[in-house]
Amino acid sequence: MTRVVLVHGIAQEMKGPETLLADWYPALSDGLALAAGPRVARDDVSMAFYGDLFRPAGHRGLGTPELDASDVQEGIERDLLLQWWQSASDLEPRVAGPAAPARLRTPLLVQRALNALSHSSFFAGLSERMMISSARQVRRYFTEPDVRMDIQDRIARSVTPETKVMVAHSLGTVAAYEALHALPDCPGLTLVTLGSPLAVRNLVFERLLPRPSDGHADWPTPVERWTNIADVGDVVALAKELAPLFGDRVRDLRVHNGARAHDVRPYLTARETGRAIAEALRGDAVGSG
């Protein structure tokens, strides 16, 4: 019986569903406890895992193939890295921004972005390869139909008649939103999105399926309640509020996650997240709490 479906984000290709649950489940339980919510047994929680779809194929060399600025593709990959750079510089004075006009070829401009991001608290400790790989997974989701379909299928197969709430993080919020549109007949549930890029214009929002119309996205039929939670310092969730684009039924909340603003664990331990999940598990009336 799966009452809670979890959907992870980018850069999880070397893990698996049980590995991720070992991180997510204690944080989920802590958030529920802080919100005075009901306890949920681990057997009632499942991870809609798709990270392996991004795992590189075997090769002759040792370790993971390196990526550098010259490997970044024009379009989504380049533009996403530049948006992260701009957002990080807006939030942290010590991060040099891209304000100075630069007529640079993509590799040089991207190298400036990677250098700047490496000095931000958000990306501290991440290698250039990991930053590029993260942007690449977003690009692949939107440009490779088979990958997109396989990810959404993994999510759809995790939903059961007993599912009360879906909790999605990062790129997983995009996949969850689209997957739920393909499940119009499933029982009503609550959607909780954490660190979501769904409202990022030009890079994400306009690429959603079904396509938004006149600047507004369709509401997923199975969703009875939707709570979106973002940290002000989360540079992946560049647009912190979803209600302006997805409808005023979305409840947008802010939390403070400390230095690792996009990390799913502080999102899950936040009382606001625990309360949103608790409302779904208790079956509180829509609009209460």
Rank of each mutant, 00 (worst) to 15 (best):
S118C: 07
R105H: 15
P56D: 04
L32P: 06
S121N: 10
S29G: 10
M14W: 13
V72T: 07
E18C: 05
A33E: 14
S70V: 14
S133N: 14
S46F: 02
G51K: 01
R129I: 00
Q73P: 01
A124F: 10
A57D: 13
A116S: 14
A27T: 06
A99E: 15
L91K: 03
L53N: 04
Q111N: 13
G51S: 01
A33H: 12
Q86P: 00
I132W: 01
A27K: 04
G31P: 07
R78I: 02
G16L: 02
V72C: 09
S29N: 01
V95G: 06
L21K: 13
R42Q: 11
A99I: 10
M130W: 10
L20A: 02
G61K: 07
A33Y: 07
K15Q: 14
A69L: 02
L81T: 01
L91N: 01
P101Y: 07
S46V: 15
L28H: 05
R42V: 10
Q111S: 13
D23F: 12
W84P: 06
L53S: 02
A33F: 07
R112A: 13
D68E: 10
L104K: 05
V45H: 00
S87V: 13
S89T: 04
L108T: 09
Y25L: 07
L81A: 03
L67V: 07
S29Y: 06
L126Q: 11
R55Q: 09
Q83H: 12
T19Y: 00
